[in-house]
Write a protein that binds this DNA or RNA. Structure first.
Lengths: 339, 339
DNA sequence: ATAAAGAGGTTAAACGTTTAATTGATTTTT
DNA sequence: AAAAATCAATTAAACGTTTAACCTCTTTAT
């Protein structure tokens, strides 16, 4: 490969001059700059990002962390959409994206160590099962600039989808449609889940509906199988709910399966609602009523915050950026009253 | 950050010894190795991948190219699944994955230049609109180890989904169900498309059915809107087809929309088939009959081939690795005859 | 006329590694 | 006992950049 050295000898100047010319420093004459740039182009020069990074400690590379058991993060519609938006914003700012794993070559390491090794300028914690995991906290508490979504941690800007509003919207919609027995199968233990659960309870209270513990079941995100079991369990109660809120849209598939097996139809016999607003939700039968998260803005905002943090335009102690979403009305909720 | 130098002084040896010890060379005594490894751990040493790459010309980093107009590659279920599988295989071999863009910092560049700049060990051309694009050919013809899917190029191993078999399976299935008027809305011009078109024609011929040009319309992949128009056009023919093969599953959504607007129902009034076998296809109403591509194997095989190419265990002039798929029977094709 | 400032360079060190060449001590071979 | 081989370490150069410090020559200010 042609290096700065080749340009220097071709032009009869020192390598320092070449470097400065290519980086457009002021202490090189315009004439020299022009000549250097021209021969650089002619020789097909391309800067070596490793060498540059070694000196400058800037890689223009952002780490992305998808840490979930199943190793299938990219196939989750919701996270894929967030990542796609993040990627677009990052790239148009000159940053590349590298996935953070637990290994480089033959060296096994933690996520944090991986970031240090690769010298990423910052990292986007995009999708993790468990924010309490020691490898995740090691990273979040480190000096590596980090943003996460749906989790606030000291010194890390956070992008949070408005889960309080989302759940409120769903519950109120069900109420408006005449439902009073509204159950909720919630997902894995996490900040998101507690926010949604709290909002579910608060909203019910504000509507003067008793919160019933038999209507609240812990399930799992993105897991139709688990959801199927729990949904079946709910409708078999002596006093079953008329509407069930599911952990997410993909899990809703499980609920539908459960009801099919029980010969119940949605929304005639039972109403359901999802969460996320992934593409799939619009094509379920019936079309799923769900709360659509604005993945486009979540990803974009995450990139913006991370880049600002790297540039030290902001500190990590900002208040979380809240991204609203909207209720997507389908036909999976039956109208029980006339107005 | 703690470097090899710090370990050297802590241990009272030269940096060369440290380097050799950590890389497990034979000319360092076991005792010294043990001591060095221990203090390395104690000091929290982490190798600097840039510095190492600068010397060794190995980055353990693979580029991934998603080059499509819409910049939405990650949200295509099919490609997301392939990438996810590629990523898992690559990572378990110690390779990181970085997306190839057209920019690093403020420097704009071509995809090829990006690869050189970043010094990726190889690149996976995962999703491109147009293999004839000059930036793509520049990359494919370069010395950068490259594998692509669904496109054979000299010196690059290729992973190809068995499109011939896939289309044959679909057409023969329709035939078996009694259809004789089988139309095909095919996707953007590409090797994949021509293979499928040829197989469509060959299979019809082998079944003694005339290939009709009015039953063959060029559409676009992953584009329900375009498909919607073309599907409507087909059923309005004087002698309309009874079954339509669509470019892919996602586009099938467009066809369904078109027929709804025309008050036609699938499969009663018109039969349809998709291609890909994405998750969505199973939840369309009715469940879509489609040819499922084995994304898991495609991605994994791509990673294996690329790594083998990098290690020079194979050359780029191998015959394409063909990955079979299977017909996924739904209920979107009406049975026209009794057997 | 002389000092100060500025313009346009060069030199050399540094970033953190790897590795070829070398050295000195110990062991083996003959 | 000398020569050869082996072992375990060191020295120094190199990878391709950036950048602080320095130098020389003009230009400007006094």
């Amino acid at each position: 490969m042609v290096s700065i050295k080749d340009i220097a000898s071709a032009c009869g100047v020192s390598i320092a001059t070449v470097s400065k010319a290519l980086n457009n420093h002021k202490d090189v004459s315009e004439a020299t700059k022009a000549m250097i740039r021209e021969t650089a182009k002619k020789l097909g020069y391309l800067p070596n990002s490793q060498a540059r990074a070694l000196k400058t400690n800037r890689t223009y590379n952002l780490g992305v962390l998808f840490a979930e058991q199943a190793n299938s993060g990219l196939t989750h519609s919701h996270f894929a959409a967030v990542l796609n938006s993040f990627k677009n914003e990052a790239e148009s700012n000159g940053y590349d994206i590298t996935f953070i794993s637990r290994q480089i070559g033959d060296n096994k390491m933690t996520f944090y160590e991986h970031c240090i090794c690769r010298n990423v300028d910052g990292v986007f914690v995009a999708c993790v099962d468990d924010f309490e995991d020691s490898e995740i906290t090691e990273l979040l508490n480190s000096s590596v600039p980090t943003v996460s979504i749906d989790n606030k941690s000291p010194n890390c800007p956070a992008i949070v989808s408005n889960n309080e509003f989302g759940m409120k919207s769903l519950v109120e919609y069900a109420y408006k449609m005449g439902h009073r027995k509204i159950a909720y199968i919630y997902g894995d233990t996490s900040a998101v889940t507690s926010t949604r659960v709290k909002s579910y309870e608060d909203t019910l209270n504000s509507l003067n509906i008793n919160v019933r513990s038999d209507y609240m079941l812990q399930g799992r995100y993105h897991d139709p199988i688990t959801t199927e079991k729990l949904a079946a369990q709910l409708v078999k109660l002596d006093d079953p709910p008329t509407c069930i809120i599911l952990p997410d849209d993909f899990s809703a598939v499980g609920a539908i399966t459960a009801f099919e097996k029980l010969n119940m139809s949605v929304p005639e016999d039972i109403s359901i609602m999802g969460y996320d607003g992934i593409i799939l939700s619009q094509f379920l039968n019936p079309k799923l009523t769900t709360f659509r998260q604005d993945t486009e803005r979540i990803g974009k905002e995450a990139a913006k915050q991370l880049i600002a943090l790297i540039r030290k335009e902001i500190t990590g102690n900002t208040v979380p950026v809240v991204i609203d979403g909207n209720l997507e009305e389908g036909s999976s909720v039956k109208k029980l009253i006339d107005d």
